[in-house]
Simulated scan of single mutants.
Amino acid sequence: MSRSRRKTPIVGHATCRSEREDKKLWHQRWRTRERIALASVSPEALSAYLSLLENQISNVWSMGKDGRSYWSIKRQAATADRIANHKGRNLQECASLKKRLLRKWMSK
């Protein structure tokens, strides 16, 4: 996977890297409530049963990421250039830092 890269540069607004734990909790709650609801419904009323909605279990806005946005390659290069010029001590260090940042951001 060292050569894998993003096909579309869309990134999430967050302090966390992924919402994996939030999604696991949501699915666990949803399955539990669905199991309880199905156990309480009579076999005659089973065909009229409606599944629970996502919003009834959890709020998407309370999860780790607040949304996603498109981060173009041009803007990534400009940001990497600005950071590299600020942190680098010489031209070679600036160039390698910029290259490292772009590879980091374009990886999955």
Rank of each mutant, 00 (worst) to 15 (best):
Q56F: 11
W26I: 14
S18H: 11
R35E: 15
A80L: 00
I83A: 03
T32L: 13
W26M: 10
K24D: 15
K65Q: 10
E21W: 12
D66N: 09
S69F: 08
H86D: 04
V41Y: 02
Q76S: 00
Y49D: 00
H27F: 15
R89S: 11
R29Q: 10
W61E: 14
R29T: 02
E44H: 02
I57F: 11
S62W: 05
K87P: 00
R35P: 03
E54H: 06
W26F: 14
Q76W: 00
E34P: 03
H86T: 09
A37I: 10
D22P: 02
R82L: 09
A77L: 01
D22N: 08
D81M: 06
I57N: 06
Q56S: 13
K87M: 04
G88A: 10
L46Y: 08
K24L: 15
A78D: 00
G88L: 07
R89H: 03
S40F: 04
S58Q: 12
W61R: 05
S69T: 15
M63H: 07
V60L: 09
A39Q: 08
W71C: 12
R82H: 07
M63F: 10
P43S: 08
L52E: 06
V41W: 02
K87G: 00
S47H: 05
S72T: 07
K23I: 15
A77Y: 00
M63C: 11
G88W: 03
L38N: 01
S69E: 13
G64A: 12
K87S: 02
K24A: 14
D66K: 06
Y70W: 06
L50G: 04
R29I: 06
K23F: 14
I83E: 00
A39W: 02
W71I: 15
A84F: 01
L50V: 13
A84T: 02
G88H: 05
Q28E: 14
A37H: 06
G88Y: 03
V41R: 03
S42M: 06
A84Q: 01
Q28V: 10
A80D: 02
Y70A: 07
E54N: 13
K87H: 05
V60T: 11
S18E: 14
L53E: 13
T79G: 00
E44C: 03
R75E: 11
S69A: 12
I36H: 07
Q76N: 01
A45P: 04
L46Q: 08
A48Y: 09
G88R: 02
H86V: 06
L50F: 08
W26H: 06
I36G: 11
A80Y: 00
A77F: 00
R29A: 10
E19G: 12
Q76M: 02
R20G: 15
R20M: 14
L50I: 09
T79Y: 01
H27D: 15
A37E: 13
T79E: 01
Q76V: 04
N55Q: 09
